[in-house]
Nucleic acid binder design. Sequence first.
DNA 1: AAAAAGTCTTAACCTACATCAAGGAAAGGG
DNA 2: CCCTTTCCTTGATGTAGGTTAAGACTTTTT
Lengths: 204, 204
Amino acid sequence: MDNTELSIQKLLNYFNKRTHLNEADEKIIADAYKLKKVKKKEYLLRQGEVCKYEGFVTKGAFRIYYIDDKGLEHVLYFAFEDWWVGDIASFYDQEPSGLNIQALQDSELLVIDKSTKDKSYEKVPALEKVFRMVIQKHLTVLQKRFLMTVSAHAEARFNELIQRCPTIEQMVPQHQIASYLGILPESLSRMKKQIAKRETHRSN
Amino acid sequence: MDNTELSIQKLLNYFNKRTHLNEADEKIIADAYKLKKVKKKEYLLRQGEVCKYEGFVTKGAFRIYYIDDKGLEHVLYFAFEDWWVGDIASFYDQEPSGLNIQALQDSELLVIDKSTKDKSYEKVPALEKVFRMVIQKHLTVLQKRFLMTVSAHAEARFNELIQRCPTIEQMVPQHQIASYLGILPESLSRMKKQIAKRETHRSN
DNA sequence: AAAAAGTCTTAACCTACATCAAGGAAAGGG
DNA sequence: CCCTTTCCTTGATGTAGGTTAAGACTTTTT
């Protein structure tokens, strides 16, 4: 079994956890998605472009971020295996995107373009429900993140992130974690020093 | 035509803008949704309760907000006519909600409970697509809001709000607008004074 | 192996907004 | 209509995190 087939198997697995697909459905899906390799630091999407692909990450990791008018980057989320990447608004309306999607490591994903996706909904109606639920999940996660961001200090947000995703510090550089938390790298560095100082005080 | 029928007509209208329903579909939907009246300051949902209803606002306005551990309120969004209210996570998983949904004025909405909603998806599959798109829209709006919140100052967020929703100041008290912007009422008051001062300087 | 690019830390200073406190205006209820 | 509650404003002071600048350390590229 080659790389593409393995990836497709992961995707079918993902779908079958959420609905039941028959063999004909699986064939349609297998034909609709194409394997795409993206090298470290390369982009799947850049701000200003139309989002051509919706992708299912099968290997590696991505960061999805926005660059504001001052040139500062703001990480919207990190995407690892079994996550979806893309800019829904840009993909569905085929209008310029406000987001950048960059590989953090050499990565692979299964991608689908807009017209193929539309056809897949027609051919496999069960996908409507699956994606409704996937998007619902995304929405609730973002809602929680938003409320956390407006109600808690950076240190609480940092602790929450580490608890929810303990390996994150091994996977992405610290300045990108700072960007995810909504603070500058300098602030995160300072904050970690403070935390460490409190830790040693406590143990003495 | 009574109040309920008028409301149902608004809802069918809303759905028919996004898909095509036949008469049987319309009948099913008309039976599934019930009119509910909520007086000013009353709640459709309180933090800690399970979200029993998903609602389509046909009259009035609501605020959806979260109370943090310090007791501070954070407005997630305001909902006016033709908007949906509810806590998706709590509604679909029937688990306690983290949100409060309160009427800002005497209001009316069409509500549906979880099991009726599940049945409506089975009976009218076209609704899957409609709600997938509604939720997609919610997600993109929240995404933009989140990025605005982390990248722009309170004054820029205020200007954006006024531009996007010019009547908001007539509809909701200023301290709730402050809460939506993620600042304290005192800060918004001060900010508006600053803006006004700059305006008069410019015109002299 | 050298050069270049990227990453992390530290320090001094600054600012947007929070906090605390209090008085006044408006609005809604009996 | 008064009384209570809600709402808005203003001032003094505090602070989390931003800004600027610089040095060291690490990784990648050539």
